[in-house]
Simulated scan of single mutants.
Amino acid sequence: MPYVKGQSGNPKGRPKLTEEQKSQKEQFKQLLKSSTVDALQSIIQIANDRYNKDCLNACRYIIDKAYGTNTAFLVDGMEETTPIVIEVVPHGKQDDDEEWEQEWNDAPDEDLEEEE
């Protein structure tokens, strides 16, 4: 059946629920809501167990639900938000390699002097 412009692809929409289905859906929602506190306590227990492999996921889940998924936190004393810049320098000419090698060889071996 080809698409017809201006006509819905699902003209009847979602089928209506029967009374039994409505009742089951309502019972399901009530059961979910009644177990929410227990579930949260279990997640908190996992988050507090540093040896549990799911500790990080539990912590992330709690933070996401409490503050949202795109929230940035600043740790106390770390208010400085200047970015760390890493500069990538292309490898130089052969002459630069020789100079670096000479500097490396001329550097004093402090670790060897301490051992003696």
Rank of each mutant, 00 (worst) to 15 (best):
Pro2Ala: 08
Pro2Phe: 07
Pro2Lys: 11
Tyr3Ile: 09
Val4Ala: 01
Lys5Arg: 08
Lys5Ile: 05
Lys5Gly: 01
Gly6Thr: 01
Gly6Asn: 07
Gly6Ile: 01
Gly9Thr: 08
Asn10Met: 02
Asn10Pro: 00
Asn10Gln: 03
Pro11Phe: 03
Gly13Trp: 11
Gly13Ile: 08
Arg14Leu: 09
Lys16Ser: 06
Leu17Phe: 10
Leu17Ser: 10
Leu17Arg: 12
Thr18Ala: 05
Thr18Cys: 07
Thr18Lys: 05
Glu19Val: 09
Glu19Arg: 07
Glu20Arg: 04
Glu20His: 03
Lys22Glu: 15
Ser23Phe: 12
Ser23Asp: 13
Gln24Pro: 02
Glu26Phe: 02
Glu26Asp: 11
Gln27Val: 00
Gln27Pro: 00
Gln27Lys: 11
Phe28Asp: 12
Lys29Thr: 02
Lys29Met: 09
Gln30Glu: 11
Leu31Trp: 11
Leu31Thr: 15
Leu32Glu: 13
Ser34Ile: 07
Thr36Phe: 10
Thr36Leu: 15
Thr36Gln: 14
Thr36Ser: 13
Val37Glu: 15
Val37Tyr: 04
Val37Cys: 00
Ala39Trp: 11
Leu40Asn: 09
Leu40Tyr: 10
Gln41Glu: 14
Ser42Phe: 03
Ile43Phe: 08
Ile43Tyr: 10
Ile43Gln: 12
Ile44Gly: 08
Ile44Leu: 13
Ile44Lys: 14
Gln45His: 08
Ile46Ser: 06
Ala47Tyr: 04
Ala47Pro: 02
Asn48Val: 00
Asp49Cys: 03
Asp49Trp: 04
Asp49Tyr: 07
Asp49Val: 05
Tyr51Ala: 12
Tyr51Leu: 11
Lys53His: 03
Asp54Glu: 09
Cys55Ile: 00
Cys55Met: 12
Cys55Leu: 00
Asn57Gly: 10
Ala58Tyr: 05
Ala58Leu: 07
Cys59Glu: 08
Ile63Glu: 11
Ile63Trp: 06
Gly68Lys: 06
Gly68Ile: 04
Thr69Gln: 07
Asn70Lys: 12
Asn70Arg: 07
Asn70Met: 05
Thr71Gly: 02
Phe73Tyr: 08
Leu74Met: 02
Val75Arg: 10
Asp76Tyr: 04
Asp76Leu: 04
Gly77His: 04
Gly77Ile: 03
Met78Val: 08
Glu79Ala: 08
Thr81Arg: 12
Thr81Glu: 10
Thr82Asp: 09
Pro83Leu: 14
Pro83Gly: 09
Ile84Pro: 00
Ile84Ser: 10
Val85Pro: 01
Val85Lys: 12
Val85Asp: 06
Ile86Ala: 08
Ile86Asn: 08
Glu87Leu: 12
Val88Met: 00
Val88Leu: 09
Val89Arg: 14
Pro90Thr: 04
His91Gln: 05
His91Glu: 09
Gly92Val: 04
Gln94Thr: 07
Gln94Pro: 01
Gln94Val: 13
Asp95Ser: 15
Asp95Cys: 03
Asp96Lys: 11
Asp97Pro: 02
Glu99Ala: 10
Glu99Leu: 11
Trp100Tyr: 14
Glu101Tyr: 13
Gln102Glu: 14
Gln102Thr: 15
Gln102Ser: 07
Trp104Val: 11
Trp104Arg: 15
Asn105Arg: 13
Asn105Pro: 00
Ala107Cys: 15
Ala107Gly: 02
Pro108Lys: 12
Pro108Arg: 09
Glu110Cys: 01
Leu112Cys: 00
Leu112Asn: 02
Leu112Pro: 00
Glu113Arg: 11
Glu113Asp: 13
Glu115Ala: 07
Glu116Cys: 00
Glu116Thr: 01
Glu116His: 01
Glu116Pro: 00
